[in-house]
Amino acid sequence: MISEHFFNKWIWSLLLIIPICGLIFDEPYYITLATKVIILGIAGVGLNLALGYCGLISFGHAAFFGVGGYVTAIMSYHAINEEILFNWPFDIFGSSEMLIIWPFAIFISSFFSLIIGLLSLRTSGVYFIMITLAFAQMLYFFSISWPNYGGEDGLSIYMRNSLPMLNTMNPLTFYLISLSWLLTSIYISYKLINSPFGMAFQAVKQNEERVKSVGIETFKVKLLVFVVSGAITGLAGSLYTDLNRFVSPSVLDWQTSGEIMVFVILGGIARLYGPLVGAAFFIILEQTLGAYTENWQFWLGLILILEILYARTGIMGLFNKKKTI
């Protein structure tokens, strides 16, 4: 049995080896693919906080992923066209600087998660799953029929947004940017779950009544976790827009919520690196199966079902039997 700590080291070395291999074999696409895994992993790390550690099964995290993505594309779009973004209460211009876009994406997706969380957290269980889905669907239909930013056609920004001194269009550079965000988000999660606040929200998952009885306002605890979770997923959405230089309503689709959830569960819930491993497994399956058969979704479905039936603790659990919290 390998310890989780050891396993995590393996993950880190892989994360560094893959891009180097991509460079050596002149296959820059593999770097792009690895970047996609990392970004989806970040989205999963965000969801894992709410879902894995606090027991809030959100089926609507596509909303935050999409909001982060749209904020990024819209700001960049206005910068390209040199138009004003808002003129009230003061003039705000678009920007194609990631250093400006990131805080905006994080702020606005936190704002959305605050509103959605305030309303949804009144419910629990299946009702919570479904009300979060409902909010994501609202945004999805809104984005399709809102003509200003492309509607169903989506919004192209042609070029990635920029960082000082770096060429973000270079696959390796963008990979490293995403990797540092992954590191940051995992670090934040780690610090959070080991803080007193973290003890509180993990206790809420186990027994909310008991936490209430010691005088902690569980509603506030859950809301705060939900907001942090949404903010991290929103950031991932921002990076995803830059990866594709494009955003469209499909990021707000319910299947996006489903897939982020799949990453988390597949990797092993309430494990720091679980979402990353889950995303990697999913993307690798999609790519290899897709190369052999048109009906790859059939086999993907079959493998996922087998995984759930026979590897209950997720992929990381196969290597490490630590009881999930």
């Binding site: 169903e152 056609d153 594709n244």
Partner: peptide
């Protein structure tokens, strides 16, 4: 899915080094 299409285009241009792209059905 538009995002998959973009990633495939990246792959074909970066890794497969194609000269011509074609095939897309949907405007978006």
């Amino acid at each position: 899915k538009p995002d998959i299409a973009v990633q495939l285009a990246d792959k074909m241009i970066q890794s497969d080094k194609v000269d011509v792209l074609t095939g897309i059905i949907w405007s978006n």
